[in-house]
Design a protein around this nucleic acid. Structure first.
Length: 925
DNA sequence: TAAGTCACG
DNA sequence: GACGTACGTGACTTAT
């Protein structure tokens, strides 16, 4: 402590630091365009300051404080507050989360709070420190903070290292710090868009305040002002002056979540700090830190070799509040924690929380059982009573109350594997988590296409350890028990291990993000998308069970009729659903053309084959196709969807998989709402069952031809770009160019061929594939493709270059830098290699489209909120978003959504979005 | 658990 | 000239 017994609290304006670092340092640009210059400058400044204050021994407390977002309570006082601020530079945005990571790596409190600017938090902590009799140093040069200066409170300009005290404030504002607010209220501030009073600058304001004491007194005596223009302005704009005062006056009584006692300074733990700095490749600072704070080589965050394997770890079972509090204190100290929840269901929207596990270091993890019951009695139905007694555990509400502030603390990073699931479960339990990191998504941006991203697979791959299988604790099949029935000793081993492994994976994967230049994709796309998708899943969509029941009945009756027709035509009864039996009927008994196919030697009976037979005039295959359609619709949709309606919400809540599709697309399951029928009239009826809530409408907004537009942009095809700019019919244009038919004479068949070519191009066209699609000879298909490439040589170039890039580097990239690895691109098997080559052509196009709609989805909640709209985003179907909006807000919602979607990318072709409205999804499309 | 089939973009 | 194909998914049914 300081020698005179007085404490000295350092409060660093983190947001100010960021911008000073950004503008002071030359951009440090990497091949992927990621700029880490500001992070580097920030770390250097922070290190220097921390080093000096530690050496001087005067500072006792230290905290870094950030703006939470651009919106604060001031926007409610004055909506234009900071409205003329340009958005932060594009190369700075992806660095934002790294600044927080840096602060945590230094072992310093990282403070921010929703709805408040850093300045308000600094003002509040300053006030608290003063009340406790401490002195304060505010590290910032922001003039808005000068109102806080007084005897015990000074500021420190971080660049010039110059103290700012009363004298310096007088130099700037010509008044004492206590009157700075009044002067600012009169003079206004163009950078923050604080209006002030017209015609009054700082000098005049200071004179007036000097003369009249304060703003209120001045306004009360405005009539006495001699200069007519000034008098009139003061009278006329008195209210504007008062609003301005409210804007510039800092709030000193924010209900902050942290106590300054938590800011007590200490030397940073070298291991995580060095790990962080090495991950950013800040070599000079790394060695400086090593020299100053110690830390062995090989102690870095990304090196885990020395830690014991998970099987040797001793985990802690938490059964009382004292033990939980110890963990919470530890989490607060290190600033991050791996979290895993155990539940009784895989469906996050239906699952009950059963327990929580936490880990803050490799091998160091705990499990907190919360809703475990005794084992179910053997061989009997459990009716809630007869089971063994529930084990000792902390009451759920108490544990949640204790963990809630930790999970909500912006300075504590919550790490999870597929954390969207845990976010939903914990949010429903009353303890939402923010900020978050996700090891599954880290793996996904680093290694999409290389391997899967499930925890078991990642553990085996990166940690050389096979986790305890779930089956081992819960059993399998009919005897499987829910996790709340698992005995605590087994639950502890399994659950705590998951948190441990998650933490270890994070230590391996997180540093790779910067090293491999994937921070931008992760920070600007995947990480911010997590809460957006979680909200969509929780919102669900209303489904009318009655409509589905009626359709099921209709389909069933008609399928039964067709079934007897088929049996009559076949001359015997057989299982139409069995491809084996059907094949034998068709090709053996009826001896129609078309032989065996496939590895298994079974007859192929796919739709294309039956279609051929039907075209030859055979009745039975035609009827089988009809039967298949109806039974498919019934079993996969009208029957299955009814079972998926959540009884509590009356809605269907799909699960979106963020790491499912290697191209970056989302996948949907349980149920899959991305493949609801639309192409046939019968199938489309199913969409009538997807309805809006009373008083609401469904809105569908879809990107028009997004993949072809991306192709035109990436391959830089002037003719295609021109066509899109003019809003031309792109397939007709292709037909005209490739087949030489004038647009005015275009016929449907020619246009259809061109459309198939356009789709084929996106898929990595082959003569075989196009021939099959168009039912034409391969030679003809080849000549179409040749003609296309002749007309659009740029497309050919793009394809060659995609193949080459994939062969050379093993991956291709989207417009936003997402990488898709192609594991078999150098395979000696030509089939597998060709497959990878076609995927290499398709992935940048499909993946860029996925990036664009994700960018839109991230921006949409704020866009709706800013427009005061209550609409909810419910579904995503690759190029389409579905919303539910109050009827009277439909037009405004469409406008906001369309604008946001169209502006989500800046391409050399326009992006257009088409929207529809209706009471059901069928009507909205 | 794999294979066949078919729903979507 | 190999190999066997349009790109990306998930669900259901039958067969093993």
């Amino acid at each position: 402590m300081a020698e005179n017994g007085k404490h000295l609290v350092y409060l660093i304006d983190g947001s100010g630091y960021i911008f000073r670092a950004y503008h002071a340092l030359p951009p440090l640009t990497r091949p992927d365009g990621t700029n880490v210059g500001a992070v580097s400058g920030f770390c250097n400044m922070l290190y220097k300051l921390l080093d000096e204050t530690l050496q001087s021994g005067k500072a006792t407390h230290f905290a870094v404080i950030f703006d939470h977002s651009s919106k604060s309570f001031r926007n409610e006082i004055y909506s234009d507050y900071k409205a003329n601020r340009p958005p932060p530079p594009e190369d700075l945005v992806p660095q934002f989360p790294l600044f927080r990571d840096a602060v945590r790596a230094f072992g310093l409190p990282c403070i921010e709070m929703e709805g408040y600017e850093a300045d308000d938090l600094i003002a509040t902590y300053t006030e608290q420190a003063k009340a406790d009799g401490h002195d304060v140093v505010i590290v910032s040069s922001d003039k808005d903070l000068m109102q806080l200066v007084d005897g015990g409170v000074t500021m420190l300009d971080p660049m010039k290292n110059r103290p700012i005290g009363r004298a310096e404030v007088r130099e700037k504002f010509f008044v004492e710090p206590e009157r700075v607010v009044d002067v600012q209220a009169l003079a206004g501030d163009s950078t923050d868009n604080v209006p002030g009073v017209p015609g009054i600058g700082i000098k005049t304001a200071a004179q007036l305040i000097e003369e009249y004491g304060d703003l209120e007194n001045l306004l009360a005596h405005a009539e006495e002002i001699k200069q007519p223009k000034r008098r009139q302005n003061l009278i006329e704009h008195a209210e504007l002056a008062r609003i301005s005062r409210d804007l510039v006056r800092l709030k000193r009584d924010v209900e902050v979540e942290h106590d300054i006692d938590g800011f007590i300074i200490g030397a940073p733990d070298p291991a995580p700090l060095i790990g962080f700095l090495e991950a950013q490749s800040f070599r000079t600072l790394t060695s400086r830190v090593r020299a100053r704070f110690g830390g062995e080589e090989g102690q870095a965050l990304n090196e885990v070799a020395e830690t014991p394997p998970p099987e040797d770890a001793e985990y802690e079972l938490i059964q009382d509040m004292a033990a939980l509090e110890k963990w919470i204190a530890e989490i607060r100290k290190c600033g991050f924690v791996a979290v895993d929840t155990e539940t009784n269901s895989l469906d996050a929207v239906a699952a009950d929380l059963v327990g929580i596990s936490l880990s803050t270091a490799p091998g160091h993890a705990c499990y907190i059982p919360l809703r475990h019951r005794g084992a179910a009695p053997d061989g009997e139905l459990d009716l809630g009573g007869g089971a063994a007694d529930a084990p000792k555990q902390i009451p759920l509400a108490d544990a949640i109350a204790a963990l809630r502030p930790v999970f909500a603390d912006p300075g504590i990073l919550k790490i999870g594997q597929n954390i969207k699931y845990d976010c939903t479960v914990l949010q429903r339990a009353g303890a939402p988590m923010h900020p978050i990191d996700d090891t599954m998504l880290l793996s996904f941006v680093l290694d999409a296409g290389a391997h899967g991203h499930g925890m078991d697979e990642l553990s085996r791959l990166h940690l050389d350890y096979t986790p305890i299988p779930y089956k081992e604790v819960a059993g399998t099949g009919k005897a499987q028990i829910t996790f709340d029935r698992v005995p605590l000793d087994k639950a502890l081993d399994y659950a705590a291990e998951d948190a441990d492994i998650t933490f270890r994976l994070w230590r391996v994967l997180k540093p790779r993000l910067a090293q491999e230049h994937m921070a931008t994709v992760y920070e600007t796309i995947e990480r911010p998308l997590v809460p957006v998708i979680a909200a969509m899943e929780q919102a669900g969509i209303k489904v009318d069970a009655e409509i589905l029941r009626e359709l099921s009945n209709d389909f069933e009756l008609r399928a039964a009729e067709i079934e007897s027709d088929i049996h009559a035509l076949a001359g015997e009864s057989f299982n139409i659903g069995s491809p084996k039996q059907l094949g034998e009927i068709l090709f053996d008994r009826m001896s129609l053309g078309g032989g065996r196919k496939g590895k298994t030697g079974a007859y192929a009976t796919g739709a294309d084959i039956l279609e051929d037979l039907a075209a030859q005039g055979h009745e039975l295959p035609r009827r089988v196709l009809d039967w298949r359609q109806l039974t498919k619709l019934k079993s996969t949709y009208t029957d299955a969807l009814q079972k998926e309606i959540n009884p509590l919400t009356g809605r269907v809540h799909t699960a979106y998989h963020m790491a499912g599709a290697s191209t970056g697309r989302l996948a949907s399951s349980d149920p899959n709402l991305q493949n609801i029928p639309i192409r046939t009239e019968e199938g489309r009826k199913i969409r009538r069952a997807f309805v809006a809530e009373k008083g609401c409408k469904l809105i569908s907004a879809d990107y028009s031809q997004i993949e072809l537009r991306i192709l035109a942009h990436i391959a830089d095809i002037e003719a295609l770009k021109g066509a899109f700019a003019e809003g031309a019919d792109i397939h007709a244009l292709t037909a005209s160019e490739v087949f030489g038919v004038p647009l005015a004479e275009m016929d449907g068949a020619t246009r259809r061929k061109a459309k198939a070519i356009n789709f084929g191009i996106i898929y990595g066209i082959s003569p075989f594939g196009l021939a099959r699609q168009l039912q034409i000879p391969q030679g003809e298909a080849k000549s179409f493709i040749d003609a296309y490439f002749e007309r659009y040589p740029g497309v050919k170039d793009y394809m060659d270059q995609a193949r080459e890039q994939a062969r050379e580097h093993g991956f291709v990239e989207t417009l936003y830098g997402r990488r898709i690895h192609l594991a078999t691109i150098r395979d000696k098997n030509p089939a597998r290699r060709s497959f990878a080559e076609r995927a290499a052509i398709n992935a940048p196009i499909q993946g860029s489209a996925a990036d664009i709609i994700k960018r839109a989805m991230i921006r949409i909640p704020a866009a709706l909120d800013d427009a005061g709209l209550a609409a909810k985003m419910l579904l995503q179907v690759h190029d389409e978003l579905i919303f539910e909006a109050p009827e009277d807000q439909v037009d405004a919602t469409i406008k906001a959504v369309k604008t946001t979607m169209e502006r989500a990318a800046r391409l050399s072709v326009p992006l257009t979005v088409e929207a529809g409205v209706g009471d059901s999804w069928a009507d909205a499309h």
